[in-house]
Amino acid sequence: MGDISIKINIADRVYPLRVETEEEEVIRHAAKLINEKIKELQDNYAVRDKQDLLSMCVLQYATGMIKAERNAQNQDIGLEQTVHELDNLLTDFFKK
């Protein structure tokens, strides 16, 4: 597909973007999540400065992303170990 022009509003600022058509929905959803998180932080903390709220939002999302990456790596390691164990079992079975 092709590029399209969209406008995304984050923290009361509009950002014009050119994105792939298939990415539009994901980008709009991400902007919505960011704005919801900013609103949540604003309601729960005595912070009003948008820069501070954006920084707190980014920190939370980055922390979540790092945790998810570590979890995926651990699952990959576990899967790899399981495959090796299965391979050893099959090798032993067919040797008999």
Rank of each mutant, 00 (worst) to 15 (best):
N9M: 13
S5D: 15
H29T: 15
D87N: 05
D12H: 08
I38L: 03
L54I: 00
E24P: 11
R13P: 00
F93N: 03
R48F: 09
H29G: 09
I8T: 09
M1E: 10
T21W: 10
E69T: 09
N71P: 04
Q42S: 07
D12I: 03
I6N: 13
L86A: 13
V47M: 04
Q75V: 14
D76G: 01
N71D: 12
L59D: 01
T91D: 06
D87Q: 04
K50E: 08
Q73W: 04
M56D: 01
V14W: 06
E25C: 14
K96T: 13
F93E: 05
T63Q: 06
D87F: 06
E85Y: 08
Q42G: 04
V19I: 10
S55Q: 00
Q75G: 04
L33D: 09
I34V: 12
A72Q: 15
D52L: 01
N35A: 05
L54C: 04
N74G: 08
L79T: 06
R48A: 07
A68G: 13
V26P: 08
R28P: 07
K96G: 12
E20I: 13
D12P: 05
D3R: 14
L54E: 00
D92I: 10
D49G: 02
A68V: 05
I38C: 05
H29S: 14
A46R: 03
Y15R: 05
R28A: 06
L41Y: 04
K67A: 12
N74T: 06
A30P: 08
V58Y: 00
E85D: 09
L53H: 00
D43E: 15
K39D: 11
D3Y: 14
S5G: 11
C57I: 00
H84R: 10
E20P: 09
A30I: 11
S5R: 13
D3E: 15
I38T: 04
I27Q: 10
A31Q: 12
N44L: 04
L54T: 01
P16Q: 05
G2S: 12
Q51A: 00
I34F: 06
D49W: 00
K67I: 12
E36A: 12
V58I: 02
E85P: 08
I8R: 07
G78E: 02
E36D: 15
E36L: 14
I4H: 05
T91P: 06
Y15P: 02
T21A: 05
T21N: 08
L86N: 13
N71T: 10
Q81N: 01
S55R: 02
D3A: 13
K96L: 14
R70I: 07
K96E: 15
Q51F: 03
T21P: 03
T82Q: 04
I4V: 13
R48M: 07
M1P: 11
K39C: 05
Y15K: 05
I10S: 03
V47W: 00
I77R: 07
E22T: 11
A72K: 14
L53Y: 02
Q51L: 03
I38F: 02
R70Q: 04
K7Y: 10
E23H: 15
Q81I: 01
E24G: 11
S55K: 03
L59H: 02
R48I: 07
L86T: 09
N88I: 11
I10G: 01
N74Y: 06
K39S: 08
C57R: 02
D52T: 01
I77T: 07
Y15S: 05
T63S: 07
A68L: 14
M1F: 09
